[in-house]
């Protein structure tokens, strides 16, 4: 009896931690919080729905402690669901040290995140920039034609974080060698 109960206790402690991946799965299914996939989608010749246009708005922000300049080259784009589009983001590191950045996407309304498929995105990886370096980072996406009818407008936000301190050793070495 006692052993059984202790097993439940240990199991529930584990369950607390299991909630972390479970939550991610849950978000992926329901679109809570507008998290998007952090792996590339494959563009299969989807039928483009010319009868609908969807406005996608891009927002860029840098988090506290991140000195980079970060701007969306295209702030707003009208797309047909199923159509493949590329937008670019400009970044510059004005600091006198190399910095590794990580962009975190968030989509609102959250449901739209389920239908935003990125085939290529700078947000999939850490982005290193040398002191004073600038770059154009591409993001290629298409909107799933399954997007619910009532959504004709959604916003994609990228928040850029300074993750230099958490970068792996190989990344740090790569930075100094460049």
């Amino acid at each position: 009896m006692v052993i059984k109960l202790v097993t439940i206790v240990v199991g529930m402690f584990g369950f607390g931690f299991a909630l972390v991946p479970l939550y991610d799965v849950f978000c992926e299914i329901t679109g809570i919080n507008g998290k998007t996939d952090n792996t590339a989608a494959v563009y299969e010749s989807v039928i483009v729905d010319d009868s609908r246009t969807v406005t996608v708005e891009f927002l860029t922000r840098t988090h506290t402690g991140m000195p980079w300049k970060f701007e969306a080259q295209t702030q707003r784009i009208e797309v047909h669901p199923g159509e493949l589009n590329t937008v670019e983001f400009y970044v510059r590191n004005p600091a006198s040290r190399p910095i590794i950045g990580q962009a975190i996407p968030s989509v609102s309304p959250g449901t739209a995140a389920l239908y935003l498929n990125k085939t290529e995105c700078f947000c999939f990886n850490h982005q290193p920039l040398q002191a004073g370096e600038e770059a154009l980072m591409p993001m290629q996406f298409y909107v799933d034609p399954q997007l619910p009818e009532d959504i004709s407008f959604f916003t994609v936000q990228y928040t850029l974080f300074d993750v230099t301190a958490n970068a792996t050793e190989t990344e740090k070495i790569a930075m100094t060698q460049r």
Binding site: F13, G16, F161, N166
Partner: peptide, 25 residues
Amino acid sequence: MPVLAGAVTMVLTDKFFGTSFFDAA
């Protein structure tokens, strides 16, 4: 109660041991 223990443990590791259960970055 074990779930609460899990939650405070995650707070502890997020704060002191560099995990990011609750940190967007």
